[in-house]
């Protein structure tokens, strides 16, 4: 029982990370049809700069952590918005080229991160409470899992509120359905593009700081490795669906944890098999709209 609880909550924590990456990917894809390979780099730069700030403030205090998270989100948002504005926009409606540009950006940026911060992992110091455990139903749960889950839920709520109650949220929702008709109502949908990139980048940058707490370090490849699972999550959840991304994040991460524990560390393979199964049974994903 305690093992199951541990696996479930750890899975939820990992799912929270997946969601922070996948939510942006899904929104961007839904609105613009862009598969963003550079999204992992938004996460990595958010993590690096977030921790640079935290380290200068104080090692391991709560307010340094909060500063790191805010910085990570802001940096992620700025880098993402700049990417949209300077690279993606020039290739409007040329989806393959847009993917290629993000691929180039991903390769170049990871190399640059290695140049700046080295190829070895940079270890981070977070508040000591996060390194301790709390006992729930006999399971000793690392405390940082709770924070991951809490932050991801807050981000989910914030994105839903934005989509539901702001004019730009309305534009984004309408644009996901029918982008051309939005422009035919006299709305410059490109501003929504930049905004969606910024939101996705903020979530990813925040996710970067949290991911480095989860793993205990930052490295130039931290974003890239999470990105692949985030891709799988967005396909399983249904491209362009935020709810799908949230549900699939949890399912994928929990499945991964259980397979890792009970099936001899085969979590990654189980996830790929799950992806194959979903595609065979439901090519549009769990919550995907019509192509």
């Amino acid at each position: 029982m305690s093992t199951i609880v541990l696996l479930l909550i750890t899975g939820l924590g990992l799912g929270a990370l997946y969601f922070l990456v996948a939510s942006g990917l899904s929104l961007i894809y839904g609105l613009m049809g862009v598969l963003n390979f550079a999204h992992g780099s938004f996460l990595t730069i958010g993590a690096f700069i977030g921790w640079e700030v935290a380290r200068r403030l104080s090692d391991g205090s709560w307010w340094a952590l909060v500063a790191a998270m805010l910085t990570g989100a802001v940096v992620g948002a700025l880098v993402a918005a700049a990417t949209e504005f300077f690279l993606i926009r020039r290739l409007y409606n040329r989806h393959i080229e847009q993917v290629l540009v993000t691929v180039g950006l991903a390769l170049a940026s990871v190399a640059l991160f290695e140049g700046i911060w080295g190829t070895d992992p940079t270890y981070v110091t977070s508040p000591s409470w996060l390194g301790q455990t709390t006992e729930i139903l006999g399971a000793r749960i690392p405390n940082n899992r709770f924070m991951l889950i809490l932050v991801a839920v807050l981000v989910l709520v914030a994105i839903v509120l934005f989509l539901k109650f702001t004019r730009y949220g309305l534009i984004v929702r309408a644009g996901v359905e029918n982008r051309l008709m939005v422009t035919a109502l006299g709305i410059d949908v490109r501003r929504a593009f930049t905004l969606v990139f910024a939101i996705g980048g903020a979530a990813a940058g925040l996710g970067g700081v949290l991911a480095s707490i989860y793993y205990g370090y930052v490295s130039a490849h931290i974003g890239g490795s999470l990105l692949i699972f985030a891709f799988i999550v967005t396909v399983i959840g249904g491209l362009g669906s935020l709810a799908g991304a949230a549900i699939a994040s949890v399912l994928v991460a929990v499945l991964q944890q259980f397979a890792n524990f009970y099936l001899g560390g085969t979590g990654d393979l189980a996830v790929v098999l799950a992806l194959a199964a979903v595609l065979l049974l439901r090519p549009r994903g769990l919550m995907g709209a019509k192509a």
């Binding site: 004019r167 309305l170 534009i171 929702r173 309408a174 359905e177 008709m181 109502l185 709305i187």
Partner: peptide, 16 residues
């Protein structure tokens, strides 16, 4: 017609 099917009537109008 091309109304936004997942938006409410009020939202469709507000958007316009």
């Amino acid at each position: 017609r091309e109304v936004f099917g997942k938006l409410s009537v009020a939202e469709n109008l507000k958007l316009a």
